[in-house]
Design a protein around this nucleic acid. Sequence first.
DNA 1: AAGACGGGGCA
DNA 2: TGCCCAGTCTT
Length: 362
Amino acid sequence: MLKNQTNYFQQKLLLWHKLENKRELPWKGEKDVYRIWLSEIILQQTRAAQGWNYYERFLQTYPTIEKLAKAPLEDVYKLWEGLGYYTRCRNLHATAQKIVFELKGEFPKTYDEILKLKGIGPYTAAAIASFAYNLPHAVVDGNVFRVLSRFFGETTATDSSAGKKLFEQLANDCIDKSNAAVYNQAIMDFGATICKPDNPLCNSCALNKKCVALKKEMVMHLPVKEKQLKQRSRWFVFFVLEYKGRFAVQQRTEKDVWQNLYQFPAMEFHIEKEWKTFLKLKNILQAQTLFTSAAAKQTAITKPVVQKLSHQTIHAVAVLVKVPALKKQMKQVQWKTKAELKQLPFPKIMHQLMQGKVMELF
DNA sequence: AAGACGGGGCA
DNA sequence: TGCCCAGTCTT
């Protein structure tokens, strides 16, 4: 019964891929495991269109895994800047070093060994194993959850542990074991271009005759997710302190968003009202006395900037202060020239702030 | 099992 | 706005 359905699915999918798939991506058909690995890390939770440029720039800068392993971590972060989920970057570098310095430059060649590497989970291990070595491991990503849940009418939540197990099993039931690379490519392309989250192309879908969700009019209700992520708001004031042509920056070390990236010294508020109150002129001027022993030569404040992250809404302004004399040595602060600042990775919102309109206070 | 982790695109 | 995206790691 189900066997029938999985066979139909596999054959129609492969036929669609052969005849109709037009998706062109720079890593398609790639057999170099370094490039496959790099592209998969970049593409985790990231749209192909967004990751494309990063992938090309990484390959230009680090054409081999040796180059990546030998590069300073700071440089790798700078190249990753703006892509998000920065732990991926740290793990990318760490894994490159492990492979080059401990594994003699040889990328592991089995699913289980690949899975042990930092930054590589079940999805990425299956992707590398199949694309590079044609090993029969089915990828299970957001596309696969969606395609399988719809075609088989499977309502188990994809973000439950039962769901993960079930869909991994289902995916491995469907895969063409002798042709894993092509099959995995096909199902993800299909999910991205036909069985899309919104406005799926059911009318022209090559699998629509046996799609359970379509028959039951459940397409837009699948896949099922049971968890909803919490949103919280945070309010920041960043102080851009300029002293003798240098600027104070600090690295974010705490376990928080933007770990290991740089920022201007910050104050955080958890209540919007307190943030707004602080932004009144006299409070800002008073806060400056934390850093400077004499009246600032010039003070300006940027317009507020809002950035929506998937789990936080960040509100921020920057206060620009020309400091005539330092009050005391601030801890954990480095003074950098403009040229040096350009070498450091900053969160997106720091760039937004510096590009935004500035209102002079003096 | 539940949360945390970025940023962008789309309706 | 809310949801999703070639997910993984920590607690």
